[in-house]
Write a protein that binds this DNA or RNA. Sequence first.
DNA 1: CCTATATATTTCAAGCTTAAAATTTTATGC
DNA 2: GCATAAAATTTTAAGCTTGAAATATATAGG
Lengths: 159, 159
Amino acid sequence: MSGEKPRQAEGAVPSKESLRLWLRLLKVQRHVEADLRERLRREFNSTLPRFDVMSALHRYRDGMKMSELSRVLMVSNGNVTGIVDRLAEDGLALRVPVPGDRRAAMVRLTKRGVEEFERQAKAHEAWVHAALGRLGPEDSARMTALLERALDEGETDAT
Amino acid sequence: MSGEKPRQAEGAVPSKESLRLWLRLLKVQRHVEADLRERLRREFNSTLPRFDVMSALHRYRDGMKMSELSRVLMVSNGNVTGIVDRLAEDGLALRVPVPGDRRAAMVRLTKRGVEEFERQAKAHEAWVHAALGRLGPEDSARMTALLERALDEGETDAT
DNA sequence: CCTATATATTTCAAGCTTAAAATTTTATGC
DNA sequence: GCATAAAATTTTAAGCTTGAAATATATAGG
């Protein structure tokens, strides 16, 4: 089992350091997310999940399959179904049949969806900056880099 | 140094830098959280919200009022009600009447709750370290510090 | 007292989220 | 061709989450 090895400095158990990091990360994330959620609700009568879906659809302008949407957003399949349903009800998104595969459907933003998203995205960017901007560009870039390093893990992506 | 003013380098709009940071932060957070959620479910047949509540109750061993729990965890009042209900059903938590105020109730972990939480917390810490440990202690501490700086904002806390 | 206001909590309706099961369609092996 | 597996999506049941309304109790002001 244990033996000699990298005997850790007293009081500085590595996993404790990771735990501290995780708790801080979570706190900042919740803080910012709560702020964004409330503003999105009050100013656009919308929600974060809706914004996320619209954001993905705006990036992939030609449309995405439900499964792609699910993968990109890291949420379950069934979840996406409901959100897209509601966006479609509101005339912001649209399901387009895929020729040659009657199982799948391409989801796209409608014209109104694009316009509405761009309006929201502009505000969203400002809100995020208001929430995190105090870090300054250097520290922000530094932290972004650290976060990317933290993520290089199960990244067996082949693109 | 640079030449004139803080005139931003072309293509480097400050709010874009904040946005990049936010998106990376969110990605890491979701990654780790998805991992923790699944393990908690598979190994302890529990959930993250339950773990969070138990964690708070473990820290404040004498019990907390529902409203305190809600504030500490940054979730809504009504939310806490349901989670504590289920913990109570499972014999892990307990509502104790507050003498002198019949509106309020102290929530506490039961003996079983304490034991169960400590078992889970041990695993949880290891999981977090597995997810974030690749950063190493220095970078972890660096990032924790940056996160704390990002949070010093509406912090008018007086402790 | 008694009314008004504040506090602590729960209830409610709507939406989000997941994992698992069910459905429908496509691809593959024989 | 036909059974069987794989893939895309939806449905389902349970739990999480919120903001707002409802309850119940406590605290003041008059």
